[in-house]
Amino acid sequence: MLRFATVLALIASPALSQQASVAGTDGQNALGTVPCAANAGDPLQSCHAELRRRDDGSVTLAVQLPGGDVRSIYFTDGIPDSSSSPSPINHEIRGDIMVIFIEPGEVYELPKAALNTQ
């Protein structure tokens, strides 16, 4: 539980929003880390991430995967509905954590509270 509280604190911290950006992101929003795995069967790792909020209420989560690629996940009304991958995306809620799956094996964990408006 402490791991997720730390992730939430990092993503939601305005102080971090002015630090260096994840490659391929604009660096203007909250930075932190999220647990992620790039391939089926890989253990979750701490991946650099940037949470970008738009004026229309949509949110983009940009995550730097192990290996350096950046995956963008797009949210509408707090639900991940597409990504920068052409593969299908789905999610499930496990308590206070949203687990996002992008086929064939990408996994991301994000505290639901990180998607709340601030």
Rank of each mutant, 00 (worst) to 15 (best):
S87N: 15
A37T: 12
C36V: 05
R54N: 14
Q19C: 00
A114E: 06
L2A: 11
T25V: 01
I79L: 14
Q18W: 07
Q19N: 05
E92D: 14
G57L: 07
V22W: 03
F101Q: 13
P111W: 07
H48C: 02
L51D: 07
A40V: 07
Q118Y: 08
V7F: 01
T6P: 00
G57M: 08
S21Q: 13
S84A: 10
S87G: 09
D77G: 14
P43E: 13
D42G: 06
P88I: 05
F4I: 12
L8F: 09
P104W: 04
A62F: 08
G24R: 03
G27T: 04
K112Y: 00
T117S: 12
N29L: 00
S87A: 15
L110T: 10
P88Y: 04
E106F: 09
Y108P: 12
L51K: 02
L115V: 03
T60S: 09
I89R: 11
I102P: 13
V7K: 08
D26Q: 13
R3L: 12
L115N: 09
A62V: 02
Y74R: 06
P88H: 03
V70H: 01
Q28N: 02
L31Q: 07
G27S: 06
E50P: 03
Q28D: 09
H91T: 11
M1V: 08
Q18H: 06
P43S: 11
M1Q: 06
F4R: 13
Q18C: 04
S13Q: 03
A23V: 08
L110V: 15
D26G: 04
E106S: 14
D69W: 01
R71A: 00
